[in-house]
Design a binder for these strands. Structure first.
Length: 439
RNA sequence: GCCCCCAUCGUCUAGCGGCCUAGGACACUGGCCUUUCACGCCAGCAGCACGGGUUCGAAUCCCGUUGGGGGUGCCA
């Protein structure tokens, strides 16, 4: 069970597609599970696809996901001789013929080409429905079929794991393989497509298919891997969120579900949130840094300072990009006010009274969150307000918003001086707003 | 048009002829907890597309219908 050899064979068409990432993952899982090898093969038979930056993107994305390969990547653009030899061989055996400068393979008029698919069972195509297809273009370059068949044979691939959109090329590749003199057939596993809300194949035009864009929003690689593994496969024990090693040990190609799977951003984020919560606070703060640095105020933030406040938002963060808007008031000179929330909260008669009372109490109180908590609680009591209600004006004065991290801890980190300043600023803002309201 | 694939809650899935009164997760709804939000906990909503077989027994096997998707390039 160990002489298995798989390959992930992307065409460099831009940023790595989610579907490609999932295919890479399943190949990797199958290889790891069986103790076999996985090689990376770049399908760049078309010169346009050979651009270094496109290929770099593939490496970068795979590297981020920590999907490792055995040996050096194979570039099809460097194997043209092999393909030429194959075509010449077919030509000399009259298995192929020249047509308009291109070479076409002779497909038998009768019979059928079939195979046993690991995820779909028997799949069969009538040969009469397959046209004589091009194996070498008029410009002398090999087509996908040729390169694919030659390489899978030459590289000793035992398991071909790829998307269902390639299921119809399989009979052609099988014919070519046989014409090459192969006596064996690799195992095939055609994975279900990942589809959008409209149940259509994820497309570059309509859908956000670039793996990179999820990375940029702050989806963690292990969470992405974990989620992707759940698209078309499920653990037998119903435990969905788990370490990759466990997934490897549970994974079987024959357990892959054949029907297409919708990409569900909500679920991805829910899983990512679990991974975020599981991080140790230090790692979380560090992971947040790149996102803070994208903010105008983020340059001020140093890791030490960030590490003190980051734990306050850790369990409130689904993707890392949600970090900065929750933390901005710690670093800004003045909070950014949500005007709608401000109006709503401050229209309460008690709002200015609470601000006044709190301000004078805060000049004296011992500066720790428990004392601040108790102070506001008792002030609220005077107005017969529960803490939840009494804290609202203070929260918006300090943070600019009606929701956010725990208030007393936040004020503690902000310091007495800043807190008093912000309360004063809020009182002034209240005064200047008022005439307009009552006029 | 032709070829191929697919069909369990809204979504991802478990289920491989009796253990199914169909399980879990996400989402959603209600409640508890609570300094907002969130976390956590509890509860709820919700599904085997349809029709024929086979069988003592079918979500599970077979056939058909319907629906959905993919492919149909000298792209990969």
């Amino acid at each position: 069970m160990s002489n298995t050899r798989l390959r992930f064979a992307p065409a460099p068409t831009g940023s790595l597609h989610l579907g490609s990432a999932r295919t890479a993952l399943f190949n990797w899982l199958a290889a790891r599970r069986s103790g076999g090898e996985l090689i990376l093969r770049i399908e760049d038979t078309n010169a346009e696809l050979s651009k270094p930056e496109l290929i770099d993107n593939i490496y970068r994305s795979l590297d981020w996901l920590q999907i490792e390969f055995d040996g050096e990547p194979v570039r099809q653009s460097e194997r043209t001789d092999l393909y030429n030899d194959a075509v010449e061989q077919w030509l000399s055996k009259d298995l192929a013929y020249v047509d308009d400068g291109a070479v076409r393979f002779r497909v038998p008029a009768e019979g059928a080409t079939s195979w046993h698919d690991l995820v779909r069972g028997n799949v069969s195509f009538e040969n009469e429905n397959i046209e004589d297809f091009v194996v070498r273009r008029a410009d002398g370059t090999a087509t996908f079929f040729t390169a694919n068949a030659v390489d899978d044979f030459d590289l000793g691939i035992t398991h071909v794991v790829r998307g269902e959109d390639l299921i119809n090329v399989t009979p052609k590749v099988l014919m070519l393989r046989q014409a090459l003199g192969a006596s064996d057939t690799p195992e095939f596993a055609h994975l279900p497509l990942i589809v959008n809300e409209q149940r259509k194949k994820l497309s570059k035009r309509r859908d956000d298919v670039a793996l990179e864009s999820y990375r940029e929003r702050g989806v963690l690689a292990p969470a992405m891997i974990n989620y992707l593994a759940l698209l078309g496969w499920g653990p037998p024990d119903d435990i969905e969120v788990r370490p990759i090693d466990e997934i490897i040990s549970l994974f079987e190609l024959t357990d892959v579900n054949p029907s297409s799977a919708m990409f569900d951003l909500k679920k991805l984020e829910a899983i990512n949130a679990e991974y975020v919560r599981a991080m140790n606070p230090k790692d979380f703060a560090n992971a947040l840094m790149p996102w803070l640095e994208q903010e105008s105020w983020g340059v001020v933030a140093d890791v030490e300072q960030l590490a003190t406040v980051a734990p306050l938002i850790q369990e409130r963060t689904k993707v890392l990009a949600e970090g900065p808007p929750q933390l901005d008031f710690f670093f800004l000179d003045d909070p950014e006010f949500d005007e709608a929330a401000w109006t709503k909260v401050m229209s309460l008669d008690e709002a200015p009274l609470i601000l006044d009372a709190v301000k004078s109490a805060f000049t004296e109180v011992e500066w720790d969150s428990a004392a601040l908590h108790e102070t506001l609680r008792s002030i609220g009591e005077q107005y017969e307000m529960k803490l939840g209600k009494a804290q609202a004006p203070l929260r918006i004065a300090i943070t600019g918003r009606s929701v956010g991290p725990p208030l007393f801890e936040s004020m503690y980190f902000l310091g007495r001086e800043t807190v008093l300043q912000r309360i004063t600023a809020a009182q002034q803002k209240l005064d200047t707003d008022k005439p307009r309201d009552s006029a």
